[in-house]
Amino acid sequence: MKRTIKPSIPERSEDPLIEVSLTVNGEAVTRKVSMRMLLSDFLRHELGLTGTHVGCEHGVCGCCTVHIDGKAGRSCLTLAAQANGADIRTIESVATSETVLHPIQQAFKECHALQCGFCTPGMVMNILSRFEEPGPLDLSDEGIRDMLSGNLCRCTGYINIIAAVRRAGELTGRT
């Protein structure tokens, strides 16, 4: 292809910037970002934590679920600026080690609870938040279905995810 003069392309938009400082997976982070940047984009593209997925950008599908100050939240409905000072936890922090999965992840694998894997990080973060809540955990069939009722999956038909939550209960000694 014939070489042409490179177009002049600005580095970034002229959006007003805001400094945000927050903790992500236990690490302190400070960045200057556009005031309208979503937390999901911040995590994925500013920090490179692309395990958090974006499936609908209107808070319905649950793919983008992360923990915000210990509670499951939609990173696609949260601005990075709103997360200033927050403690954020993403899927990248969940596994027990480089070689050992978290019991919820392990249960997903054993039960074939994922196919394409796009919804999976959001599912895991949502289930994890429920497992980490103080108090009793309802692992009845209805309780598990209710637990999953904020996450869409288009591949599995959910039954294996329900089985995986039950299995995670066994693996973590919760009943």
Binding site: G51, L101, G117, V124
Partner: peptide, 9 residues
């Protein structure tokens, strides 16, 4: 699965 479960897809 491990890759997808860890968010490393």
């Amino acid at each position: 699965d491990p890759k997808l479960l860890r968010g490393e897809g």
